[in-house]
């Protein structure tokens, strides 16, 4: 994931790249406006959504994450539960809601097998809660697999490379 793709990215003028970049921007908009139901609608039912725990290791070990532990390792069932929870009246951690903004950049699109697109991006999540605690930042790289459908692109897989081994945010009541 961190090593990236071996092939060259599609040129920015390629329509497939433009569609992928627009997908990520629109997706971020849905998350920033708490439209979780519509966000879930962008997921393929076979979605794998993963964020491994990163680790500080000596350079020679070439170990970037704890292979057996994740912050997220989600399928359709568990993503849907997380979305349903935000829709209850008792998800206290997000009531009052955080002010959040996903800053998406560094989008690179690659041809995958079949009609799949492999899309790398960077995301910076700014999250401000209440009026007493300092805001938090989460920085991550993402590698997505997007598949074309009749309704447009859908997210089939997302691997999130979070840029911290010890998170400085009170919880992950967010999506990256």
């Amino acid at each position: 994931m961190s090593s990236g793709q071996s092939q060259a990215p599609l040129p920015y003028t390629d329509e497939r790249h433009q569609a992928a970049a627009q997908f990520l921007t629109e997706e971020a908009h849905l998350l920033d406006t708490s439209d979780f139901e519509a966000w879930l609608g962008l997921m393929d039912r076979r979605i794998r959504y993963r964020m491994p725990v990163r680790v500080t290791a000596v350079k020679a070990a070439d170990e970037v994450d704890v292979q057996t532990m994740h912050h997220f390792d989600e399928d359709w069932y568990s993503l849907r539960k997380r979305v349903q929870r935000f829709q209850t009246d008792y998800a206290w951690t997000e009531d009052p809601q955080s002010r959040i903004r996903h800053h998406v950049s560094n989008v690179r699109t690659f041809e995958g097998s079949d009609d799949e697109l492999i899309v790398e991006s960077a995301v910076l999540l700014y999250r401000s809660r209440g009026d007493r605690t300092a805001p938090s930042l989460l920085s991550a790289g993402r590698t997505d697999v997007l598949i074309p459908t009749e309704e447009g692109l859908r997210l089939r897989q997302r691997d999130i490379e979070i840029d911290e081994s010890v998170l400085r945010t009170q919880n992950l009541a967010i999506f990256l």
Partner: peptide
């Protein structure tokens, strides 16, 4: 493992609300 990740830990749906109280 799935049960754990859904309920507790950094993204757990129980733990999210606990920590909000403690902060």
């Amino acid at each position: 493992y799935k049960a754990y990740l859904m309920c507790f830990g950094s993204s757990g749906m129980f733990e999210q609300d606990d920590v909000e109280n403690w902060v």
